[in-house]
Amino acid sequence: MGAILPTPPIGLTPLSAYAAEYDWLFFGMCLLSLCFMVPIAVAIVYFAVKYHKDSKADRSERISRRSRLILESSWAGIPFLLTLGVFVWAGKMYVEWATPPKGALEIAVIGKQWMWKFQHPGGQREINTLHVPVGRPVKLVMTSQDVIHSLFLPALRIKMDVIPGRYTHLWFTATKTGTFRLECAEYCGTDHSRMGGSLIVMTSADYQSWLAHAGTAISLAAAGAEVYRKNGCSGCHGANSTVHAPTLGGLFGTMVRTADGREVLADEGYIRDCITLPDKNRVAGFPPIMPDFSGTISEADLIKLIAYIRSLPPGARP
């Protein structure tokens, strides 16, 4: 819908089709609000003048019970139905905001007091500045290593809390290049108001060359392989292991049956829980022997490990 609407003239320039649609909804709601406010203001002034205590206005007529009921139900009902339209439209946008498209460029985000750490799939890292290509869906996979933060991109009209202990998502497709504000919107302590930076939207070519110059040649998944090796994961999950542990190749994105009979989607959050809270979603048919790595593995390593597990082809048991 947003795509076919022109950009509204006022306010902050919208940076995506979603943001443009948001502006229409927002200013539509402003207009609707005025439609409710003006009659009340007019009525108050009119009544205050006409029925001022010294005025000789006719006060004899009394409204009938029936028309009073009609009046009251209409002024309660009609505004409610009108605003329900806003509820539906906003709800549709909310679902869109919450549903990242498949195949988006995934960038890992770690919030910590008081900085944002970003890591691109190729392993390029940056702090407080986020480079993204224009015209391509970008999905941020976010977690916090201390308190709750919230990643806020005003030009895109989106934000999402970044919560310790789990992954949350935010996605967008920027339609203009340029530099825009990036902020922390959830109060997180002393330097909360300094925990911001910029979102830099570049053309695809510029993004590629930025990636090429940004250092690290080791991709996230390759770095994950190193973490995998260092933590001795192959001791149990490897092909040569005698220990009965699940095969990790091709696991990502499948449904897993847990020991207590639930079906769980093996997404980032699932793999994270398997490493830090091994008993939570233990796979059916496997003994509870997975050690708990919560104290020993950092958020950054977790992200690499997940990227690595994700990259494994079905059946692989490295």
Binding site: Y22, L25, F26, M29, V86, F87, W89, A90, G91, K92, M93, Y94, E96, W97, P154, R157, I158, K159, A185
Partner: peptide, 9 residues
């Protein structure tokens, strides 16, 4: 309104 709140909250 959910979608509106995402930006404003």
């Amino acid at each position: 309104a959910t979608g509106l709140d995402v930006h404003l909250t």
